[in-house]
Design a protein around this nucleic acid. Sequence first.
RNA 1: GUGGGCGUAGCUCAGCAGGUUAGAGCAUCUGGUUGUGGCCCAGAAGGCCGUGGGUUCAAGUCCCAUCGCUCACCCCA
Length: 420
Amino acid sequence: MSKNTIRSIKGTHDILPDQSWRWQQLENHVHDFMHRYGYREIRTPVFERTELFARGVGTDTDIVSKEMYTFRDMSNNSITLKPELTAPVIRSYLQHNLGRLTPLTKLYYIDHAFRQERPQAGRYRQFHQYGVEALGSPHPEIDAEIIAIAYFSLLELGLENLTIKLNSIGSRECRIAFRAALQHFLKPHLGDLSETSKSRFNTNPLRILDTKIPHEIEIVQGAPAMSDYLTAEDVQHYNQVKSHLNDLNIPFEEDNKLVRGLDYYTRTTFEIISPALGAQNSVCGGGRYDGLIETLGGKPTPGIGFAAGIERILMAAAVSQSEEPTVLVYLIVIDDDGRSTAFKLLHDLRDKGINADMDYLHRSMKSQLREANRLGAELVLIIGSEELKDGTVQFKNLKTGSQKAIPLDSVLAEISEKPD
RNA sequence: GUGGGCGUAGCUCAGCAGGUUAGAGCAUCUGGUUGUGGCCCAGAAGGCCGUGGGUUCAAGUCCCAUCGCUCACCCCA
């Protein structure tokens, strides 16, 4: 690469033609899948007011405190490239009062988000997710549906050996009690905790449970369990979610240490991990957020959703489902006389919905045939001065090698028949 | 922010104790066929050996710095 070329920004990637076909396939699958489950697409802007994330996601989360792309626009507003996709959807839901139409609003998206982290396998600064949000129902069936969508959509996209990790972190009331108990338990160990854990002790002690530091894991081992602090309603809700999952034969593992990193989660939280990935093995994460809509200025409305990482899915999914469409017919021009005839014929073919192309470099016939072969064309139409004279084209099948002269005006008919 | 690995042709990589004009395979282009692809053969093009500095008679090779890529920690999709 020349020293003068400009590179893409660290942690961002071009999706080249080799890969874009897989993206299209995945997106098509997602659209189709979501429609089957009764979800409608929503698209929100790439950037939002910074305040949306500060309020919605929580200022003491890693995302808000150190990973956002934030800048000032010309009106001196603080703007942030979306670091996650739920808060903007809720914002839009409230702004347009989408809940007016029906008490349960089911939305999905395929979108990109931005976080300023050190890139690594499966973690990029611009990354893509598809996800769903179901707004309005507090009932466990919708929790199960959300998990079902996450799980079955991933299966349909070709992922294997997935593990669903499931937990309930309770309603807001019992989290307050649990939080106090946790702080009470951790207080004597405060000196042994890492700096980050120490600061989380006050801001969000639940996240200390998620620690990866060995000696903290030991300390946390004896911590009070969230499950002991769930209210009777929380327990019942959780049990019903599990029961519905069992009804659908969706396998899951309970993990009472699973705490989603964003502040807004309540009750059901889940994560789906794939063994085909590296250290960043989570392909999907989600949960219930019964307080979020109220936090963002709406009336109290329950909600639940998930987001799945498209790059990670593409990394973990071995097979692509179908062949990329290729050029079917390639036109070859031998000498300048035939060029305009070929150009018009090319247009007619395309107009009739046939994948067709021709050479635009005035190359030798041999080169043009090579190109046709490289493109995977099945048929080649050759036009030279001799053909022009008697109004024909050479009709050649590249698979069999057979060739015949046919009248120019019968080309379309000939192609639509089974070529031989 | 912290740590490890790696930067030689478009791609994947050789380059062996520092020693003359820097190599291979694949890809590309041209030719072997006065109008016929794949396979085969021949040839061509393509490299400030990431950048800067240092050591040396001599640096792709050794040292330092720097930039970039990558993996991992943290956290997450």
